[in-house]
Amino acid sequence: MNGEFSLESNPLSISFAGLTLANPTILASGILGYSAESLNRVAKGGAGAVVTKSVGIAPRAGYSNPTVVQAESGLINAMGLPNPGIEVYSEEIRFSKTVLRVPVIASVFGYSAEEYAVVAKRAVEAGADAVELNVSCPHVKQTGAEIGQSPKFLSEVVQTVKAAISKPLIVKLSPNVADITVLARAAVEAGADALTAVNTLKAMAIDAETMRPILSNVRGGLSGAAVKPVALRCVYDIHEALGDVPVVGCGGVANWRDAVEFFLAGASAVQIGTAVAENTEVFQAVTKGVETYLRRKHYGSVKEIVGLAHRK
C-alpha cells in the first residue's frame, strides 16, 4: 500500500520512517507489553501500532515494589526494566506477528552499543516491523548517566544498531536533558529514521509520615497528564530544529485533543501509555475524536496538520 492510496482511502492513516499505520495512535512501551495476547488486546482496542516492553540481552526481574506511585495528575514508576531477555521474548514477538494486524515495534535496551545491536537484530529476525531504542537506562561505562543524555554515546549506539538491522529505527529520547534538539540531531545524524519524544521525566515521591522515599528504587519516571506540556514542548523544539524528521509524540495523551496538540507541534503519530490503565480502548476513542476534528477543521488527513502550530 503506498502513501497516496492510504491517504485517499483513510484520512487517519499515516506513513513515516517506512511504516504505514491505519491510525496515528501507538501503544507506548512498558504498558501491557509482556505477551502477544495483551498486545493483541491493545491492537483490538484500536492502536495503529504497538511497542513492546523494553527487552534486553538477558532476563531482568526488575525492582521490588513499590514500583508505581500516584503523583498529582500522573504516575511515577520504577519497574526496573523487567523482561525475560531477547531469547525468550523472540517467541512472543514471533507469536505477536501471527495474531496482530498492526505493526509491532520492538523496544530494545542495552548496556553497550553492541548489546543494543544484538537485541535489535534478534527482534527483527523474530519479525519486529521496527525497533525503538530505549536510551534512558544507565550506561555501564559512566555510572549514573543515561546513554540518551550523551550525544556521543547515543550516536555510537544508533550507528551500531542501524548497521545491524534493515528495519526502521526509532529512537525514544529522554526529556531529562538541557537541550533535547542536540540529542535529536545526534540520533538523526547517526541514522535514526524517526524519534519518539519523550520518555518519562525523572521524578520521586517521599512520604511525610514515614519520612522515606516511596519507590523501592527511590527515583522513577513521571508519566501522565503532568508531563504533557513538557513533552509537547520537546516535540515542538525538535520539529523546529529538524523539520522533516518524523517525530512520535509521547507524554500524557489521553484524548483526541491531546493527540491533536502533538500533531500541531510536529508529531506524525502519538504514543499512549498511562491512559491505557483506565481504558484499553482509548486508541479507538482518540482516533475517532481526531477524525471528527479533521472534518470540522476541513482537513483531509492527519498529515496535513502536522507541525501547523509552527506557522508564523
Binding site: 501491557l32 509482556y34 505477551s35 495483551s38 508505581v68 504516575l75 514508576n77 519497574m79 491505557v276 490503565a277
Partner: peptide, 20 residues
C-alpha cells in the same frame, strides 16, 4: 502484582489483567 491499576502487565492471564 506490581502497579495494581492495569498498566504494567505483570498479572496477565490470557488477555485479562487480574488486577483490573
Amino acid at each position: 502484582m506490581r502497579c495494581g491499576i492495569g498498566l504494567c502487565g505483570s498479572c496477565m492471564i490470557g488477555k485479562y489483567r487480574v488486577c483490573r
